[in-house]
Computed example of a mutant assay.
Amino acid sequence: MASLSSYVDFSQPSLWLSIASILFNPTFWNIAARSEYHNKTLTRLAGGNALYGCYALAATIFCLGLVRDAIYERALRFQPAHPALLGFVPQALAAGLVVSGNVLVLTSMWALGITGTYLGDYFGILMDEIVTGFPFNVTGSPMYWGSTMSFAGTAIWFGKPAGLVLTFVVFAAYSVALRFEDPFTAEIYAKREREQKAGSKKAK
């Protein structure tokens, strides 16, 4: 039975560069968003305009995502393929994962808008209410899991086990990020609700 190293070339620098970019992105945007929330760092850099600061962060995150995806695709080129991942059934599965993943990502962006997608809550740009319709009635984090599905689908499409290893890194990175993001975001909205209740009591 072939070992993992037979189908994953760990000596390729592109593989490690891909791992680094996958881990860097959520780390970067969480640090940047926390810095904005506590110190208004990006708002100050944007001349005191929170919306412009959020747009700048959105553009940065989007570009970093393109770079990460390009590095991932390049890493797969230098990795061996596995026969079990080649053929009609794996290709159909791959296509299904990529299409489904992109549906989750794009529909969540449509539902949230730019500021809702790209951490506008940390800038004080809060949504009127929590989005509960599709795709958020399927998963609470459609952007993350849709992206993970696309990584897996791409790995299978090219028949590269190394891509599945990298997909696991994506899954792990997003899982850790959510442990920080979800409670923090929930507290931001809970704080607004407390302030609104306190304000309504004073008005009475």
Rank of each mutant, 00 (worst) to 15 (best):
M1Y: 06
L4W: 13
V8C: 01
S11Q: 09
S11N: 08
P13H: 05
S14H: 07
L17S: 12
L17F: 08
S18D: 06
I19F: 12
I22Y: 08
I22N: 04
F24T: 10
N25D: 09
N25S: 07
N25I: 09
T27E: 00
F28P: 00
F28N: 01
W29A: 00
W29K: 02
W29Y: 14
N30K: 11
I31E: 03
S35V: 03
S35R: 14
Y37R: 15
H38F: 15
T43C: 08
L45Q: 13
A46T: 14
G48V: 02
N49W: 12
N49S: 15
N49R: 13
N49G: 08
Y55F: 14
L57R: 00
A58V: 07
T60A: 08
L66T: 05
L66H: 01
V67Y: 13
V67H: 09
V67I: 15
I71N: 06
E73S: 09
A75S: 13
L76Q: 07
F78T: 05
Q79G: 04
Q79M: 04
P80A: 05
P83C: 08
A84V: 12
A84Y: 12
L86F: 08
F88D: 15
V89D: 03
Q91D: 15
A94V: 04
A95N: 05
L97G: 10
L97K: 01
V98Q: 03
S100V: 02
G101V: 00
N102E: 03
L104D: 07
L106T: 12
L106F: 14
T107G: 00
S108P: 03
S108T: 02
M109G: 10
L112N: 09
I114F: 13
T115G: 10
T115V: 11
T115R: 10
G116F: 10
G116I: 01
T117S: 12
T117E: 02
L119N: 14
G120L: 05
D121I: 05
F123W: 10
F123Y: 14
F123P: 05
D128S: 13
T132R: 10
T132Y: 06
G133C: 02
P135W: 06
P135S: 09
N137S: 11
V138Y: 10
V138H: 04
T139D: 02
G140S: 06
G140V: 01
S141Y: 09
P142E: 04
G146K: 04
S150N: 01
F151S: 10
A152L: 14
A152W: 08
A152M: 12
A155Y: 04
W157T: 04
W157S: 09
W157E: 00
W157Y: 13
K160N: 14
K160M: 10
P161C: 04
L164P: 04
T167I: 04
F168I: 15
F168T: 15
V170M: 07
F171T: 02
A173F: 05
V176L: 11
L178Y: 06
L178N: 06
E181P: 03
D182W: 13
D182I: 14
P183Y: 13
P183W: 15
P183R: 11
A186W: 02
E187F: 12
E187K: 13
A190D: 14
K191Q: 10
R192H: 06
E195S: 04
S200A: 15
K202V: 15
A203W: 15
K204Q: 14
